[in-house]
Amino acid sequence: MASTLGLVLSFLIFPGLFFTAVMGLATQWIDRKVSALVQWRVGPPWYQPFADILKLLGKEIIVPAGARRAGFLFAPMAGFAAIGVVSTILWLTNLHGTSFVGDLIGVIYLLTIPSLGIILGASASSNPLASVGASREMKLVLAYELPFIIAIFTAVTKVSPMTLRLDGILEYQAANGALLGNVSCILAFIVCILVTQAKLTYPPFDIPEADTEIMDGTHIEYSGAALAVIKLQQAMMLFTLPIFLITVFWGGLVFSGWGILYTIVKYVIIIVIIVLIKNVNPRVRIDQAVRFFWGPVTVIAVVSMILAILGF
C-alpha cells in the first residue's frame, strides 16, 4: 500500500468520500428517475440531487433551543466518516485484491455507525418527534441485524476454508464462481436485499423518518449544511451497500474488459430491485417490521445457513 499521504488521498477523493458521494448522488438520480417512471412522471434532470445538496449548503443552520449543540451537530459526521471508510475498504480490496484496514466484521460494525450517529444526533435535538424517531431507528437496527448476521455468515460458511477476510472471499469466488450460484446464497442474498432496504430506511421500512406521521423523525431539526451531510451520508449508503453485497455474494467488482459492463449491470439490477420495492410498498409499523425481520426473514436466513452447512 502507498504512503500515508496516498492513503489519505485515496480516502478523501477516490474511492473514498468524494467519489462515493458523487456516485451516491448519481444513484439517487436513478432512484428518482425509476420512481418517476413507476408513478408515470417525467422525473428530475440528472443534476437534481447535486443541486439539492448545493442548495442546502447555502442555507443557515437552525439549532433548536435546548438542544445539546455539540452532540447535535457532531453526531452525523461520525456516520459520514464511517460510511466513507467502508466504501474505501470495499473498493481498495476489490481493486488491489488485498484486504485494506478491515475485514467483514469490521465492515458490518462500521455499517451500524451511520444509524448510531443519526440516533444520537436526533436524541440531542430535544425534539419529542425526533426522540420517537430515534427509538424506532434503534429498534429497526435490532430487527434487521439478526437476519443480516446469519445471511452474511452463510456466505462465510460457503467459502472454504472459512475466512472473514474480504480478499479471501473474493479469491474464493474468482476461483470457484460467484457465491450466488448456490441455493443457500441466493436465499441469503434475498435476506440481505431486505436488510439493505431497512438500512437505507426506504419504504416499507421508513419508520424512523415517517414523514407523514412524525415529519422526518430523526432528521426533523436538521437544516442547512448539517442536513446536507445527512443527505450525503444517505446517498453514500445507497451506493455502498449494493457494492458490499456484490463483493460478498456476487463475485466482486471486475475492472477489465466486458467485466466492467457486467459489474455495472449487477449494480443497476440491485438498485432497481431496491427502488421497486420502495415504490410498491406502504410503510409498516415498527412492531410489524420487528416481527417481519425476526420472524419470516430470520427463518429464511436460518434455512439458507442450514443449506450452506449441508453443502448446497
Binding site: 442546502l56 449548503l57 447555502g58 443552520i61 459526521m77 466518516a81 466513507g84 471508510v85
Partner: peptide
C-alpha cells in the same frame, strides 16, 4: 479524517449564520 471532512462541508456552508430557534 472523515469527521474533519464532514466539518469542512459544514463550514463551507454558511456555518457562521447559525441561529437558535424553537423546536418544530
Amino acid at each position: 479524517v472523515g469527521i474533519i471532512m464532514g466539518l469542512v462541508v459544514v463550514f463551507v456552508g454558511k456555518f457562521t449564520t447559525r441561529r437558535v430557534g424553537r423546536i418544530f
